[in-house]
């Protein structure tokens, strides 16, 4: 059962009809509906192409948050071998919204760390919808530190609505944990490659994505604030999220132009969830290529590379 987004309503109807026809044909053998059904398929395919040829910023936000979109767990399962989860921040707890551990990518050891949102009610609650608490960032810091000491490259997968706004999270220093995680990203002497696979929600994303190479999926987003939050502050109306999404320039394409994102990985037509295997494979290739580019750089070159990248952001805007 596909989950359709609000703007895919017409598509849902057509695909639903084709499905219905085929179901009818299966129940009575003498019916031949294939011709009609494939006509509907074609119509659906055309519509899908039209819809996705020029997605608005807000629609991209919806695709980036699609419940069926492949999540961190899916990428780790498919791309890495010998994944060995490592848990806990050694201070307070293990935060399940951040998963991480040692793994092999093309047989090479890496440290993989990412936000996991979960994919059904139970796992979403368990993973806190991908919203990390200080423990999550401190776990990430610990794992990055471990990787650093053993010269193992770090790969981060970013998919979070933002850091968790909670009482305990504040009491235990949410902001300090994020700041230290960003600082750790910048000081690593090993390559750091980051992929925004869905939502790059504000500081919660920066803490993982301050990398040598930032890769973004075609319909992923990365923003200072959610469009809804921005709309409610600047427009005083949360319903103005479409305008806010547009104004924030939060798409992978805009970030590429601004030099924050280094590479955009094209998604299967209709979004990564329509062909997860293909999307995951393409992300894998992009990570390998990025790690390859960085493999000859020494500790200082890697740190300088990150510094140059982020120090440069302040001198360039979008073309009018």
């Amino acid at each position: 059962m596909t989950n359709y987004l609000e703007f895919e309503k017409a598509l849902a109807e057509i695909e639903g009809k084709a499905e219905e026809l085929r179901a009818m044909a299966r129940s009575s053998e003498d019916m031949d509906v294939e011709k009609e059904a494939s006509a509907l398929d074609k119509k659906a395919a055309d519509l899908l192409k039209t819809l996705y040829s020029d997605l608005s910023a807000w629609r991209k936000c919806q695709v980036a948050r699609h419940p069926d979109r492949p999540h961190c767990h899916d990428y780790i399962d498919a791309l890495f071998t010998e994944f060995t989860p490592l848990a806990g921040d050694r201070n307070f707890a293990d935060d399940l919204s951040v998963m991480g551990g040692l793994a092999r990518l093309n047989d090479q050891p890496v440290m993989v760390i990412g936000h996991e949102k979960g994919n059904d009610t139970k796992s979403r609650i368990e993973h806190n919808f991908g919203m990390a608490r200080p423990e999550g960032y401190r776990k990430a810091i610990r794992l990055m530190d471990l990787a650093d000491r053993f010269g193992i490259p770090v790969v981060t997968l970013v998919d979070t609505p933002g850091a968790y706004p909670g009482k305990g999270a504040e009491e235990r220093g949410q902001s300090e944990a994020i700041a230290r995680s960003t600082e750790k990203c910048l000081s690593l002497s090993v390559p750091l490659v980051s992929v925004v696979i869905g939502e790059g929600g504000s500081g919660g994303a920066v803490a993982f994505a301050t990398a040598n190479r930032v890769i973004m999926l075609e319909h992923s987003i990365y923003s200072v604030i959610s469009p809804e939050g921005c709309a409610s502050i600047l427009w005083k109306d949360a319903e103005k999220m479409r305008e806010a999404a547009e104004a924030l320039r939060l798409t992978a394409q805009h970030l590429k132009e601004l030099g924050i994102c280094d590479k955009v990985v094209i998604e299967p037509l209709g979004g990564a969830h329509r062909d997860p295997q293909k999307a995951i494979d393409d992300v894998g290739k992009a990570i390998s290529a990025a790690l390859g580019e960085l493999s000859n750089m020494d500790a200082k070159a890697l740190r300088d590379n990150r510094r140059r990248k982020y120090l440069g952001l302040g001198s360039k805007g979008l073309a009018a």
Binding site: E183, C185, L186, S223, V224, L234, L250, Y310, G314
Partner: peptide
């Protein structure tokens, strides 16, 4: 917080200023 009107570039001042501290 970060200046919303500068969007992602406002957010990117987090790593930039962290470099200053370093």
């Amino acid at each position: 917080g970060a200046r919303m009107q500068e969007g992602i570039l406002g957010l990117m001042q987090m790593p930039r200023t962290t470099i200053a501290v370093q």
